[in-house]
Amino acid sequence: MSENTILGGPPNRATDATDEPETEPTPDPADLPGDAETAVHRSRLYSLLSLGFDRPGEDFEAARDEDAYAADLHASAAAIDPEIAAAAAAVTDALEGIDGDELHHQWAALFGVEEGVTVSPYELTYLPGPLMTNVRRLADIRGFYEAFDLSLADEGTDRGDHVCYLTEFLSALCLREASLRERGDDEGVAIVVDARRSFLEDHLGRWYWRLADEVGSHDDGTFYAALAELLAALVEHEIETLDLDPDWVPDDPEVTEWNEDVFGDAGRGCGGCGANVGDLG
């Protein structure tokens, strides 16, 4: 702003700013926990979780040929952590002896539109606040994908916040991490590890436990309950390893939290006009 007029540009920023360009500090290997081998296993585990949570079809049947799904799950889980290995063993136990039709029935009863999506596999469902606000969350997720030159497949019909996409994205990040570690590219490793940190802290790390609770409450002891527990074990391990502190979603989806202050009793609308959906019927 000029001396005595409102015309001008933004005011000067911090007075102690220097003209020297900011340089990125060299990443400290101690801040990048893990190694290439573990990263590959982590990548495979996320990938198998993604495949498992998807609607069972030809891909999953092919993965189960000659017990490959169970064997890979065991191998990768055991390479990461004993608790994760135990959770993986529960998954393979639950999968044993179930044919494709039965599996599809279990899946449809939980996640399928056939029965009204009993348990939502979508992140936005679990977030507090009006839907309008959460559009930004969805955009943030898509931004992560695009930052790594990934996009949803044209034939895909799910939203970007589906747990399958989230885990598949984490799998891709871990695979890139492994490749970069092999090449000794610390800067590249720092970028993908930082992205994994942010993605877990801002997204999957906030609500994975709600998914596990919801699946467990509807389907205790089956494949999907065990799979959700495996996801929880892996993400909890990630949170500990990466020293994350995700802001957990509320355990009550109807919570109004901050928007109560603005709209009072009409807190949980779409966010567009302040009307309460419950009062419109």
Binding site: M1, I6, L7, G8, G9, P10, P11, R13
Partner: peptide, 27 residues
């Protein structure tokens, strides 16, 4: 603009090129 005219910082300004009034959120 009264918003710009009242800001104590001042963090609000009117762009010389097009007259759009902006709040500099960093300020």
């Amino acid at each position: 603009a009264a918003c710009a005219g009242s800001c104590p910082v001042p963090a609000i300004y009117k762009r010389e090129e097009d007259g759009i009034v902006l709040i500099d959120e960093d300020s």
